[in-house]
Design a protein around this nucleic acid. Sequence first.
DNA 1: GACAAAGTAGACAGATTTGTCTACTTTGTC
DNA 2: GACAAAGTAGACAAATCTGTCTACTTTGTC
Lengths: 184, 184
Amino acid sequence: MPRSSTRQHIVEVASDLFYRNGYNRTGINEVIAESGIAKATLYNHFRSKDEICIAYLQYKHEVFVKDIKSYCDARPADGRQVLAIFDFLGAFFQDRDFNGCWCIKTVAEIPREDERIRKEIQKQKNQLIDFIESLLMDIKDVGERRNTARQVYLLYESAVSESHLHQADWPITSAKAIASKIIG
Amino acid sequence: MPRSSTRQHIVEVASDLFYRNGYNRTGINEVIAESGIAKATLYNHFRSKDEICIAYLQYKHEVFVKDIKSYCDARPADGRQVLAIFDFLGAFFQDRDFNGCWCIKTVAEIPREDERIRKEIQKQKNQLIDFIESLLMDIKDVGERRNTARQVYLLYESAVSESHLHQADWPITSAKAIASKIIG
DNA sequence: GACAAAGTAGACAGATTTGTCTACTTTGTC
DNA sequence: GACAAAGTAGACAAATCTGTCTACTTTGTC
């Protein structure tokens, strides 16, 4: 296996485990056992477990952005295109691998002082707000558009966390209904 | 110290540590060191660390319910009384001990299979929805009232998580603005 | 086929974890 | 003051964890 795909393989296996079972509850030994690679190989690619955590967050985000973008792009670019994010989430919720938001999960597990991971997560969330804003180009006023994007973002985030917590999809439909009202 | 207050003392110390530093990252040894009690005493009151976790969640919820109720009760019972929950959160956010939602934090740390803790958290959240509903008695239709309570709940939850994540208060004001629009 | 890069297997150090247990001391009540 | 309940101090078992290291094997390229 070429060097780059070994690294990618580790990230994908670690991502599945971290997301499913939690970062602190997943040991390095579990990652290498599941990957089928040697421990020395893992530490040849990553300096520490923390570095794998960063790679995990980036990988999940990368896939997420790609998927949600292509999902929304398939919808007509009318004023209601942004609502597609809730339908995307609805499909994600049905997936048996759905386990809530990896950012929220991770930030809950790391010490408060860990600025590196917290900044990465804030960056990702800001990119999500930017993406939502890009779907709201019908709103011409820049300030109002940013404001609306933030509101829709809040609803989306809530829908993710709460559908996971309650193990039900009413938070998704409910959040979508509010968003629908907001964008008029 | 009488038996009941020893137990309560342990719960309070453990709650502070769990909430501030995380459940998994807080060891039993830290709890007893901070409490100034002996390990055998702790295990005389609690069967396991998991049991302390349940007691922690219940204690936080108990205090939270008492505080938010008395805060909201001080407002006039007009149709907009429910918005007080966002002001309550605003004050909580200013508090240096604010560290997001203990339920979400805890659910992120425990294994998926741990039904006991998950059920406790769902119970607490349903009580919060009930409380919000009790502030919406102006809405006469039962179904619409429940629906609105859920929507306000989603906004509140989002405001808690996101103000913590972004370390900013715009999620609180933004969520309140949406709630204001919803209740008309 | 030589040679370097990459990967393997797993022992090991050193630290941490929860929970048990023993032997002792304090406290409150009769 | 006797006696039981409650608490203390901390050693200990048994299991975890991350990260390092050694000695060996495979793989790809010239």
